[in-house]
Nucleic acid binder design. Structure first.
Length: 483
RNA sequence: GCUCAUGUAGUGUAGCGGCCAAUCAUUCGGCCCUUUCGAGGCCGACACCCGGGUUCGAAUCCCGGCAUGAGCACCA
């Protein structure tokens, strides 16, 4: 009883502060590509809290940097979220909301909290570093408003002007001093074309949308800590109520490719097969490898929302996934880099093995080696066999080394003496190829019973869990998940 | 350089003044079970960054140091 209570606590996320009834939360992906494993953390955490407290979860596409947008990403992200089991109540797109950003920036300028800067960008930054206001900062409101309208109308050339929010020019933290709110972009936007030239910077659009959409809690990465501090100026200027902010630590994800621009380039170059290439860490690649969304969820829930930086552990994720699939995955023998052995002696060789050792009721794989009595062993097991001299073909019989190999009875008890049981296939097997996460592939043979199998996750005994991508008598294509 | 954040086993986490000679998961090692190096069972290994202080008592509070990370973009 006591033990159970303790366990429940450990596996749960801590409560949020200041929850009054329902919550409104959001995830805000930039549509530059599909989601990768790193993005799933914020999605899962927000989803978990909305499910706990009730309320709504908004997915807001932050598409305010037109030259980084991948037009397909809007749909891909939506699919990824659905697959993850993240329940989105509303979708919003920032490129449809520019009017809000303009109206509120105008208001801030009117209030004297913003200005239009026409200084050279480098010089403006240099002055900020020295805590000196630029000449535009103290221009009269009227002049700033005129510049603002001219700015919206496209009356400035690229880089000639920006709208700036004032904070404290002498703020001890250089990252907080005056920040750009709107900039000029002439690059056409995939959704709005060249309709707008004035584009909001993230700190402006995020703040306005979070307020307008009624966000109660914002969970995001620690890299946004300073952005939060900047955004608080806007909340204060306008007398808006601030959401509760939470910043979780950064995640370092090893051994995979996550950078969207890099993946995109490799796809274009034909090196990667697509966004679901197994060498990448995209959600669709993990899905293709047979990682269950529940495993990803459990992983992030157990990681919590602490602000410390963490190291992502594939081992831990795989262990959670194994937990989920082990009971469902049927077992088959797969032989990598097959080496042929003929067996001399013994009579009509027959054997059978359960599809799953814990579930004999699911049925059996029947073996009838008979006839030529030809089997194939993996290259590694063949080598081991030659050194050990004796080996058990699991669920069939024992053999002694030689060419041909010699039938050596069917006494299972030799396993107790240290003889190894190995996997094998007979002549009636199917070609199989297993695509590995590093992009290589392992070719071999798999028992033909796999063709009648259902369910996409199977275990190749002593090889690992794989997802079956294609089943056909000509060959089976699998993706390696983990051991 | 400045500013901010954080420091519990290999990894992630619990604990947040006495119940902690520190939890759980994973990892690793051993044993049992098993015709898989899968699953299951049992046992074991590994940690409170350092130094001061407060206190009867500190992983827990305070200060300093150190370390790590982030930001200082007309990216998000």
């Amino acid at each position: 009883m006591l033990v159970r209570e303790k366990k429940e606590k450990i596996h749960g996320l801590p409560d949020l502060e200041n929850v009054e009834g329902k919550v409104v939360m959001r995830i805000a992906p930039g549509p530059s590509g599909p989601l990768h494993i790193g993005h799933t953390r914020v999605a899962i955490l927000n989803d978990e809290y909305v499910k706990r407290y009730g309320g709504k979860l908004i997915c807001r596409f932050e598409d305010t940097n037109p030259d980084k947008i991948e037009p397909d990403a809007y749909d891909m992200i939506k699919e990824d979220l659905e697959w993850l089991g993240v329940n989105i109540d509303e979708y919003a797109v920032q490129s449809e909301r520019f009017q809000y950003y303009y109206d509120i920036t105008r208001k801030l300028i009117e209030m004297g909290h913003g200005y239009m800067c026409t200084c050279d960008g480098d010089e403006w930054r240099k002055m900020k570093e020295e805590m000196r206001p630029c000449p535009c900062r103290d221009l009269p409101v009227k002049e700033n408003l005129e510049r603002f309208e001219r700015f919206l109308a496209g009356g400035y050339g690229d880089g000639e002007a920006v709208a700036v929010i004032k904070t404290a020019i002498d703020h001890p933290n250089p990252a907080i001093r005056d920040f750009v709110a709107l900039r000029l972009v002439r690059h056409p936007h995939p959704k709005t074309g060249t309709k707008y030239v004035a584009y909001p910077m993230m700190n402006l659009s995020v703040t306005i949308d979070d307020h307008l959409m009624g966000m109660t809690h914002v969970i995001r990465g620690k890299d946004h800590l300073n952005n939060t501090l900047r955004q608080e100026y806007i909340y204060d200027y306008l007398g808006w109520k601030k959401p509760v902010f939470h910043h979780y630590g950064l995640v370092n994800i090893p051994d995979t490719v996550l950078k969207t621009s890099l993946i995109k380039q490799s796809i274009r170059d034909g090196e990667y097969t697509g966004w679901d290439d197994v060498r990448t860490g995209t959600v669709r690649a993990l899905r293709r490898r047979g990682i269950r969304p529940e495993a990803i969820r459990r992983y992030w829930v157990e990681n919590g929302i602490k602000p410390i930086d963490i190291q992502f552990s594939w081992d831990n994720l795989f262990a959670m996934n194994r937990d989920l699939i082990d009971d469902k995955a049927d077992r088959y023998f797969f032989v990598a880099d097959p080496v042929r052995y003929d067996i001399e002696g013994g009579d009509d060789l027959k054997g059978r093995a359960p599809l799953h050792p814990d579930h004999p009721e699911r049925g059996w794989r029947e073996y009838h080696v008979g006839g030529y009595k030809t089997v194939y062993l993996s290259e590694a097991d063949s080598l081991m066999f030659s050194q050990a001299g004796k080996v058990r073909l699991k669920d069939l019989c024992n053999i002694s080394y030689g060419t041909p190999a010699v039938y050596d009875g069917n006494d299972v008890s030799i396993l107790k003496e240290g003889v190894r049981a190995i996997q094998w296939v007979c002549g009636e097997s199917v070609r199989a190829e297993v695509l590995m996460p590093d992009g290589t592939s392992v070719k071999g043979l798999v028992e033909k019973a796999i063709l009648d199998g259902k369910g996409d996750m199977v275990q190749f005994e002593r090889f690992g869990f794989v997802r079956v991508e294609r089943r056909s008598p000509e060959g089976v294509i699998c993706i390696f998940a983990h051991r």
